[in-house]
Amino acid sequence: MFVRAVYATGDPALLDTAVRSLNSEGRDLLEERPGYRGAGVFADRELGKLLAVSWWETEEERRHSDEVMQERRGALLEPFAGTVSVANYEAAVLHQVRPPRQGGGLRFSRMEFDPRDADLVIDTFRATVVPRAEPLPGLARTTLLIDRDRGRALAGALFVDRASMAASRATVATVRHEASAKAHADVVGLEEFEVVYADVRLD
């Protein structure tokens, strides 16, 4: 599958307005598009950050959907969003243990690497991160989203509740250190969000 990630920042007091728009009109717009496989919305209510992710069957269907969504995105995110960035990825790994839940937690690492090492990054995530993370209490899903051409990736873990995410921090820090060294990747960002919703059709 292929993924579009929209990252917006703004006034925390206005964040819920954008969440409601994405959860209603935004989801309706996505459902109408060919190749749509699901979406997720994740919020940091304290700092005023919003991450909206949509999943697509093919790269072409993702591109065609963006022709529609980019015209409506500004209105959906008003008046919250002061900054908006859009990035596209290949879903290299999606390993689900149990369904995510509203109110759960998402942690992801932003990584940069030599594009020639893209396959090494994917192989390392599958061989090291997935099996080490799977036994963590409350883990719902691990994902690796990768941009091969630019040498960028998002490595994420979804938890069914915020307490499980917090309890995993020390263990995951060790795994992150080992995996990034093996993959020759630099971790350039680390973020945590509340799960507003997260739905991907895996069949």
Rank of each mutant, 00 (worst) to 15 (best):
R63G: 07
L120I: 07
P34F: 08
H64N: 11
L120R: 15
V160I: 15
M69F: 15
L158Q: 02
T17P: 00
L22I: 10
G48D: 04
I122D: 06
L154R: 09
R176S: 09
R73D: 05
V187N: 02
M111E: 10
V130L: 12
G74L: 06
P137E: 12
R110C: 03
V130C: 12
V53H: 03
S21E: 14
V129M: 05
A75Q: 13
R169D: 11
R37L: 15
L190M: 10
V172W: 01
F2G: 03
Y7C: 00
T142N: 13
A39V: 00
S109G: 02
E134C: 02
A153W: 03
Y7S: 10
H95K: 07
S164F: 08
E112D: 05
D186E: 14
L202F: 06
G35L: 07
A18Y: 03
A183Q: 05
T124K: 01
F80S: 03
D16C: 00
L145D: 07
L106C: 01
R107S: 07
V6E: 03
Y36R: 08
L29A: 14
S85M: 03
R37S: 08
D186W: 08
P115K: 01
F193D: 04
T171E: 14
R73H: 05
D11L: 05
T58G: 12
V97Q: 10
W55R: 11
R150C: 00
K182W: 06
G26A: 10
F2L: 09
D11P: 00
S168Q: 09
S164C: 10
S109K: 01
G103M: 08
R141S: 10
D203K: 05
L106M: 08
W55I: 09
R20Y: 04
R33I: 06
A170K: 13
V187H: 02
A185H: 08
P135I: 05
R62K: 13
R141I: 12
A92Q: 06
